[in-house]
Write a protein that binds this DNA or RNA. Structure first.
Length: 431
RNA sequence: GUGGGCGUAGCUCAGCUGGUAGAGCAUCGGGUUGUGGUCCCGAGGGUCGCGGGUUCGAGUCCCGUCGCUCACCCCA
């Protein structure tokens, strides 16, 4: 190895695992693409202020996990720690919210948080996200939750659980917050947590330390403090999820780490990842637009962790097929044959047949091994004798049977064979 | 930021109370004048993370350092 290594908390995505990741990305995005969400791409870094105000000053993300640096021009920018703030900024900047509502978009990309890495947690990670802006209708909340649940199910995961909660709105949250603060002030908490009580008391509920949880038994719950409108909203979301046969657990303590959530919040968890259990999560963020100087613009969204979904699949032992293997592998014996087969392989590729070829005059045995490893169903073998006979050998790698094909018709015959196999493998090999 | 575990071949690891660096898998080649998946044979591949110390002698013991990893906090 060279002296350089991948930076702490990052990892290289290498074959064959990279094929799994590609498939997972596509799988996580497939349901939203079928539901009218359009692709959006925003910069990997943004003005630091966007995250400070959008994600929230009181969050751990902003207070200690941001990759922030100053540009040559003196501007402070930050590698995005999450996707919603950038998407909302782009929508507002370009006035998409002045057009047809809701604005429904999805994205896929890399995100960055300066944390100590551990199982399932990296400084550079990958997620697929979706946002629906401009509609307060609880149907959108339910739609997104259902689409995420479908994504996990379609990938073959059966042990993902959905946690659901409502955090209330600007009308009912302040009173609840005050009650909660009063309760929390009476507890025996460490200094950092006491500070959190003052800044963002709801997040104390989400503390997973047993000594903290033990004291929270009598804590007032948001679910008991919701106003009529929030209660109705939450009830509708629940009815729609039930109608869609999506199961959930009520999680009255679920708060999540970002400040902007209102009303519906949810998290998808999996127990096979080590200490990190969330594979995806999201919620409604009706006040976020105003926080970044935009007009009132309700929104809901989620982000699903690609790396963690891969871990979940591994934990459940779900095999992910690699759709990108080749179908035909060419084995040339000699320079003349190599030239001929290169032409045939190129022609096959141009008509959409995935094909590969052995290079550099390696031994037939070695080339056959390469063909075997490639996953191809067929090998094309061409040597001196075949050239003299004007034929190329088509070998079925499953049955081991082999037939000569006229070189000029090889491309068309191979294509036909792939769609409707006619060489059954019961004929005699024609070597 | 705090704590535990681990650094030996591309990968997974063995290496005893200090005494000439090993295995399996993988790779490449041969066994078969032009045929893979099984089998047999062979080959290449290592500053034992790095630096210092103890010793006649350190992969092994001691100190430091870097890296990886798991966990806490928090989150995807």
């Amino acid at each position: 190895m060279s002296g350089f290594r991948a930076p702490k908390g990052t990892f290289d995505l290498l074959p064959p695992r990279s094929a799994v990741v590609t498939t997972v990305r596509e799988g996580l995005a497939a349901p939203v693409r079928r539901a009218g969400y359009a692709y959006i791409e925003t910069p990997t870094f943004e003005d630091t202020g966007l995250f400070a105000r959008g994600v929230g000053e009181s969050t751990d993300i902003v207070s200690k996990e941001m990759y922030t640096f100053t540009t040559r021009g003196g501007q402070s920018v930050t590698l995005r720690p999450e996707g919603t703030a950038g998407v909302l900024r782009a929508v507002l900047e370009h006035g998409l919210h002045r057009g047809a509502l809701p604005v429904k978009v999805w994205y896929s990309g890399s995100f960055y948080r300066y944390e100590r890495p551990q199982a399932g947690r990296f400084r550079h990670f990958s997620q697929v996200g979706a946002e629906a802006l401009g509609v307060e209708d609880p149907v959108v909340d339910a739609e997104l939750v259902v689409l995420a649940a479908d994504a996990y199910r379609d990938l073959g995961l059966s042990e993902v659980r959905l946690l659901l909660n409502s955090l209330g709105c600007q009308d009912c949250r302040p009173a609840y917050r005050a009650r909660l603060q009063a309760f929390l002030h009476g507890l025996d908490l460490d200094e950092e947590t006491r500070r959190r009580v003052d800044i963002n008391p709801l997040r104390v509920l989400d503390d997973k330390r047993p000594e903290v949880q033990a004291q929270l038994g009598d804590a007032p719950l948001v679910s008991d403090a919701l106003c009529a409108a929030c209660q109705a909203h939450h009830a509708t979301v629940q009815e729609l999820l039930a109608d869609a046969s999506v199961a959930w657990d009520d999680a009255p303590r679920l708060v999540r780490g970002l400040d902007y959530y209102t009303r519906t919040t949810f998290e998808f968890v999996h127990d096979g990842l080590g200490a990190q259990s969330a594979v995806g999560g999201g919620g409604r963020y009706d006040g976020l637009s105003e926080q970044i100087d935009g007009p009132p613009l309700p929104g809901v969204g989620w982000a699903l962790g690609v790396d963690r979904t891969v871990l979940a699949l591994a934990a459940e032992g779900v095999a992910v097929p690699d759709p990108h293997r080749v179908e035909v592998f060419a084995i040339p014996l000699g320079a003349q044959a190599e030239r001929q087969l290169f032409g045939i392989v190129t022609a096959l590729r141009r008509i959409g047949v995935a094909a590969d070829i052995a290079y550099g005059g390696r031994s037939v045995k070695g080339a056959m091994k390469a063909a075997d490893r490639s996953g191809a169903r067929y090998a094309l073998v061409l040597g001196e004798r075949d050239l003299a006979a004007g034929a190329v050998q088509l070998k079925n790698l499953d049955s081991g049977q082999q037939w000569p094909l006229p070189i000029e018709e090889a491309v068309a015959l191979v294509e036909a064979e792939l769609t409707t196999p006619s060489f059954s493998g019961t004929e005699e090999s024609a070597r």
